[in-house]
């Protein structure tokens, strides 16, 4: 098959199997909270409760330098929501091929559908959970305690979310491929996600690390693309009035570059190995 017809058949496949993507996405979302009493309500409750716990722990127990943070719960929630989307979608994508072994062995299905639908379903859950952020901001503005001034710059919150989707998809494809050959990656990645949570400025601000600015660790923390996504999102939500001074746009372009790189690596790895999957799962 020539390259062109190959591309065409991949695309035709996508068209034919778009119903499968729909079905898988709605299945993932429907089954997530089926049989739980509060059902879909957990999508809001879970991030809200985590925010309260983390606020109590890091705001009250450990104490912190609050000079730069306008509203700690909102600051925390912005970071947590994005981080949660990234880790949950990549974890789900990672297991998506291995857990579908019985189907993949018996019916021909374009395999990229599984990691893709995993990331899409977590993305939808993430978008729904953004409502929590809206409610929390409304609450603080109503009680007039550390109110957040929303400006048109809020629209700058959209680009990092969209790019983060593709970044997660690329990482998910890499993990899904690796997981087929080495199941260990599931355990390693769990620990890695915990490490990522603490090394990304989610519960603290980046300038808490100023003392380590010139060390390797400081550099690595700044190179972590999650830092860029979260900072930009936070800047748009919390620091709308001074967005352009708060956030350096070059960081966003850097994140876009990393995303393109990860997508290319992920899709190439996946595409080159997908015919071997069936022999290993």
């Amino acid at each position: 098959m020539s390259g062109k017809t190959k591309m065409k058949s991949q695309f035709g496949n996508f068209f034919k199997y778009r119903y499968l993507i729909n079905e898988l996405v709605s299945k993932n979302i429907k089954l997530q909270y089926r049989n739980s009493v509060l059902g879909m309500f957990w999508t809001f409750l879970q991030p809200l409760l985590t925010m309260i716990v983390l606020s109590v722990v890091f705001n009250n127990l450990f104490g912190r330098d609050s000079s730069k943070v306008v509203n700690y719960p909102v600051f925390l929630l912005c970071g947590r929501l994005l981080h949660e989307f990234f880790t949950s979608s990549t974890k789900r994508a990672m297991k998506s091929i291995r857990s579908r072994a019985s189907i993949i062995k018996k019916v021909y299905v374009p395999k990229y559908i599984y990691p893709l639908s995993a990331v899409i379903s977590k993305f939808i859950t993430f978008l729904i959970s953004l409502l929590v952020l809206v409610f929390v901001i409304l609450y603080f503005n109503l009680v007039n305690k550390n109110p957040i001034t929303l400006t048109p710059n809020l629209l700058w919150a959209i680009p990092p979310v969209i790019v983060l989707f593709f970044f997660s998809l690329g990482v998910g494809m890499i993990l899904a491929t690796l997981d087929v050959f080495f199941k260990d990656i599931e355990n390693i990645y769990d620990v890695f996600c915990m490490l990522l949570f603490y090394t990304t400025p989610i519960v603290y601000t980046i300038d808490r690390l100023d003392y380590a600015k010139d060390t390797l660790v400081g550099l690595l923390i700044r190179l972590n693309p999650m830092y860029g996504f979260i900072e930009m999102f936070r800047g748009a939500v919390i620091h709308g009035a001074e967005f352009y001074t708060y956030f350096n746009m070059n960081l966003f372009w850097y994140c876009c570059g990393v995303t393109v790189f990860v997508m290319v690596v992920g899709f190439t790895m996946f595409y080159k190995n997908q015919d071997k999957f069936i022999l290993h799962i």
């Binding site: 034919k16 199997y17 119903y19 499968l20 729909n22 079905e23 898988l24 299945k27 189907i103 019916v107 299905v109």
Partner: peptide, 10 residues
Amino acid sequence: LYGATMGYPR
């Protein structure tokens, strides 16, 4: 779900 896996439209 199974129908979609076999590639049939909804």
